[in-house]
């Protein structure tokens, strides 16, 4: 078996203590591992700490939060790495697609330039070449008329198109791990399905590992081989998705499964 791509070991995230108040934990010791090319779902209700987990992996926690523990990614100890070393990995080896495709894009920058910036952040000196690869990637991400639309501003695109822009941005440099934080919950149901399909097509094509964070079991059930259930800052299940659907062990997982079971069965 090849070495794990990502090992999260006893990851803890605390809200920094304000005057007098005790530090409040968001994650209380989370451990799991991912193989290259694997698709893992992280399932949890809102407030279970799943977004903080995603941000911690990238080193983008807001200053009010502190992460402890160990995160090993491609042999790099992320929590101990220097800011520069982490920055070099961000976007190039591990990238993220955020939940809200409108607010996640800079309203004053053309979308093509925003995608191209990913290449320029990692050493591409030639602006025109960066833009060309961005337009190319936008096209592969399913943005129609990519060469025209890449000159649009975010508000001139639809929600699904914006999400494709974010996806193109995340995939531009062929990362080994893509984290998708609720990538579809801000979209219409039909668009949701398209974006998920695209995500998988790209994943298969490039062999990247996907960590899909969602509160929606339906989304995870249709896409992930394995599911981790987060509850109250702890991993309560880490099982193949099929097993989770048929026999959830933890009460919280059962509640989540029961809530969507009819929909999943009919699917």
């Amino acid at each position: 078996m090849n070495p794990a791509l990502l090992i999260v070991d006893q990851l803890q995230i605390d809200v920094n203590a304000l005057r007098g108040a005790a530090p409040k934990p968001i994650l209380r010791g989370v451990s799991f591992a991912m193989q290259p090319g694997e698709t893992v779902g992280v399932l949890g209700a809102s407030g279970s700490g799943k977004t903080s987990l995603a941000l911690a992996l990238l080193g983008l926690l807001p200053p009010a939060l502190t992460a402890r523990g160990r995160v090993l990614f491609e042999g790099h100890e992320l929590l101990a790495a220097s800011r520069g070393a982490r920055r070099a990995l961000r976007g190039r080896r591990l990238s993220i697609v955020f939940q809200e495709p409108l607010t996640a894009l800079n309203p004053r920058m053309r979308v093509g330039a925003q995608v191209a910036e990913m290449a320029r952040a990692h050493g591409e000196r030639d602006a025109r070449r960066a833009l060309r690869s961005a337009v190319d990637m936008l096209g592969r991400a399913g943005l129609p008329d990519a060469d025209v639309r890449s000159r649009r501003f975010p508000h001139e695109l639809s929600g699904g198109e914006r999400q494709r822009v974010l996806l193109a941005m995340a995939l531009l440099l062929d990362p080994a791990l893509l984290i998708a934080d609720e990538p579809t919950s801000a979209l219409d149901v039909t668009v949701q399905a398209q974006v998920l399909q695209l995500l998988h097509a790209q994943q298969r094509e490039r062999g990247l590992a996907l960590l899909l964070v969602s509160h929606d079991l339906g989304v995870i059930a249709t896409s992930c081989e394995r599911t981790i259930v987060l509850h109250d800052g702890l991993v309560v299940e880490d099982v193949p998705t099929r097993q989770l659907l048929s026999a959830p062990e933890h009460a919280q997982a059962r509640a989540l499964v029961d809530a969507v079971r009819p929909a999943v069965r009919s699917a």
Binding site: R87, L89, S95, F98, T103, N106, P107, E117, A121
Partner: peptide, 26 residues
Amino acid sequence: REDYIRTARAKGLGEWDVIVRHALPN
């Protein structure tokens, strides 16, 4: 505090680039 600043950081941009290219124009 905007989301797109987080996106810019997720690209691996340096903090100065994030501030000058993304925050300042807005």
